[in-house]
């Protein structure tokens, strides 16, 4: 059984001799290292931390298997202390279908981005949802292909500037974004759909509750769960690092309102 590392408390009555290098450890135990090569201001590590903390809090450390898609978050394949596979682009819901059907006693979850899930893998997520697979899918939505350097995805919002929609996404030319979470919330076979964000402390706390609830619904076998998490990508948006949260609320936030879209919890 894993025990949570207690947070170091600075004793103000007895000041330390020298400045502590680190005042607190925020590293979830399920990370082998907190080092990563993601850009400053990226929202993805925060989202991953919420998932890993929740797994530990729910005593699911040895009871879960992760399937990663292709995106910047793929780097956590090597640092998460979890049995996982980084599968082909967009196919995580199919891959995890095979895993869950063979290991129904395990909690199976996917880590995908909007490019992975909405662009490349739309068929797989929709059909896994329709089949009512008991898996939990996380979509880290920043409206851009971050890993390849800022191109338009199927979830890029109208007006969004990307390397392949340089004057902003124009519906007449580029078409409209796919509101995947809304789509899934109308489908049978889906037990839980929510959209969270990691742009400030309140939204992070709210999103963590969604992660917890999504895992609960899988344990209750309520069908597929989707938690879309809006994550900052200042590099892929070509905005200053510290303006990431603000830019996100102004762009993605207006197209993708936060909140729970579906919960087949049945009073739990």
């Amino acid at each position: 059984m894993n025990v949570r590392v207690p947070i170091n408390v600075i004793q103000t009555a007895k000041p330390p001799q020298q400045a502590s290098k680190k005042v607190a450890s925020f590293k979830p135990d399920l990370l082998q290292t907190e080092d990563h090569h993601l850009c400053p201001g990226c929202g993805e590590p925060v989202a991953v931390r919420l998932i890993l903390e929740t797994l530990q809090e729910m005593n699911l450390v040895k009871e879960n298997i992760c399937v990663l898609g292709h995106g910047c978050y793929g780097t956590f394949m090597s640092t998460m202390d979890i049995d996982c596979t980084l599968c082909l682009h967009g196919r995580a819901p199919a891959n995890s279908t095979g895993i869950k059907r063979m290991r129904p006693e395990k909690l199976v979850w996917t880590l995908q981005g909007d490019g992975d899930m909405v662009s490349e893998g739309l068929a797989e997520i929709l059909h896994a949802a329709a089949r009512g697979e008991d898996i939990t899918c996380f979509m880290l939505n920043n409206g851009v292909f971050g890993d390849t350097g800022g191109q338009m995805t199927a979830a890029s919002v109208v007006g969004q500037r990307t390397k392949t929609s340089i004057e902003g996404r124009n519906p007449d030319y580029h078409g409209y974004p796919v509101p995947l979470a809304n789509l899934l919330s109308t489908m049978q076979g889906v037990g839980y759909v929510a959209r969270g964000s990691v742009h400030n402390a309140a939204s992070i706390a709210q999103t963590k509750k969604m992660v917890h609830r999504a895992f609960e619904r899988q344990l209750q076998k309520r069908g597929l769960g989707l938690v879309e998490i809006l994550t900052m990508c200042p590099t892929g948006w070509f905005v200053p690092t510290n303006t990431g949260p603000e830019y996100m609320l102004e762009s993605l936030g207006k197209t993708y309102p936060l909140g729970e879209l579906k919960d087949e919890g049945g009073g739990n």
Binding site: A94, N95, S96, T97, G98, I99, R101, R103, H127
Partner: peptide, 13 residues
């Protein structure tokens, strides 16, 4: 694609 990737996931276990 869906079919073969499901099989790949099942085989991974």
């Amino acid at each position: 694609m869906g079919g073969v990737n499901m099989a790949l996931g099942a085989a991974a276990t």
